[in-house]
Design a protein around this nucleic acid. Structure first.
Lengths: 238, 238
DNA sequence: CAAAATTTGTGCGTATGTATA
DNA sequence: GTATACATACGCACAAATTTT
């Protein structure tokens, strides 16, 4: 890496890079404690203000995590920055909110459909679908009591991502879901019938996969996004 | 929104939120100038340090943009934070680099396959495919001269995203591509034969779409990721 | 339970580099 | 070239939260 970094010439990014390099060179991992601000000031040869501003940048990217009175730690490197940025975009750009939700649903539908063959293969027969089944039962129960089930919905798709062995898909699903929850309430809550439809569609996805029925799985995926799609079109043309 | 924010009670996030609210309440858009630091200090009732640290946070999220000596402006709200975070994750976590690239390829393949029907529908017949065609010709030309064509590759998929009318897909493709370029070089450069394969596969995607041949389009998408998949498996089991 | 030590959070003044008019 | 406006960096003092003694 560059050894000749000079904050006075390279601007605020120099200290940020220096801290990144420090994490890499010491082989630190998420959750590991970082040196204190005072130590960083000494080791990097910059002022405390510069250290703090660099730390703020890295905290925003979830590369660092700061706990007041305790210390600074390596962050979880999650997709939280993506969520925060897109949520703000949704509330900032006028009329963008509806379009963004539509695009998220489209991308999620595409991803879910594309992993349909794999899901049918992995879950067919007597694979361990206990967690998925419990998720679905909880959804149906809450739907019958006219309660929303956002946590179970999110968990269901995260479990699918685990079956795939693709963490990026899981993180994207979780991120999109968080954005959905942050931006979506303006659409209004689902009526009970829609809740039942959504819960039942999740069950059909699971049943179809276990039965090895690819077409049924694809149909369930489409149906599963039906209620939110209807809400979006209704919102777009009132 | 909360009107009773007190940085002394809410920590560093309070000033960040206050600046966000200021952008929203004044209806500012990407590129619009922000108040100067001194003005923000007065209006938000916090110190210069706090303002600067909050600005650093928002710059990291591409919600603000700072031009030294000129001023602060509303940012482009791009997915650059996603890129920066994932690139760092790739170089930090041991053995994660290869897995991440594989997962990116898998997700991209899924997205490309899922929009196959739409592409075939939109591009069939005499739709304006001039830009796409020019992109492909440039790829083939560079491949024949044993040159890489990353810019054209990126542009090709961005044009597809435009045809879809889904900006999120375009941004994700661009972000994944940037990550790929930042993390991928350790895999080694493609030999010429692989370059030809990739360029030809792009051409087959376009031809298949114009011809309305859905299966051929899907096959071309798979073939188009062939070289990079081979590189990844070779890297995983040498 | 209480005091002290550690660490991060905030405020303020000053000097310097940079872009614009 | 000069002047002005603005961001960048530094250093110190004090406040607040947490852990340790």
């Amino acid at each position: 890496m560059r050894q000749d970094r000079d904050p006075r010439r390279d601007g605020p990014t120099a200290t940020v890079s220096a801290i990144k390099d420090l994490i890499l060179s010491r082989g630190l991992h998420p959750g590991d404690p970082m040196p204190t601000e005072a130590v960083l000031v000494e080791e990097l040869g910059v002022s405390r203000s510069s250290v703090r501003e660099a730390v703020r940048t890295l905290v925003a990217l979830d590369i660092l995590e700061v706990r007041h009175g305790t210390g600074t730690f390596v962050g979880q490197l999650s997709l939280r920055p993506l969520v925060e940025g897109m949520v703000f975009r949704g509330v900032l750009l006028p009329g963008d909110e509806n379009a963004m939700l539509r695009e998220i649903i489209e991308v999620r539908t595409g991803l879910d459909l594309s992993l349909a063959p794999l899901m049918v293969e992995r879950l067919a027969g007597d694979a361990d679908t206990d967690e998925l089944r419990a998720c679905v039962e909880e959804m149906k129960d809450k739907a019958s009591r006219n309660q929303q089930f956002p946590v179970e919905d999110r968990q269901f798709h995260l479990l699918l991502a685990q079956k795939w062995g693709n963490r990026l898909y899981g993180q994207l699903v979780a991120a999109f879901w968080d954005i959905h929850m942050a931006v979506g309430p303006s659409l209004g809550a689902d009526p009970q019938r829609e809740l039942d439809v959504t819960a039942a569609a999740h069950e059909r996805m699971l049943d179809a996969a276990v039965a090895g029925d690819l077409d049924a799985y694809r149909g369930a995926v489409e149906a599963h996004y039906g209620p939110i799609r209807r809400l979006l079109t209704a919102w777009a043309s009132p």
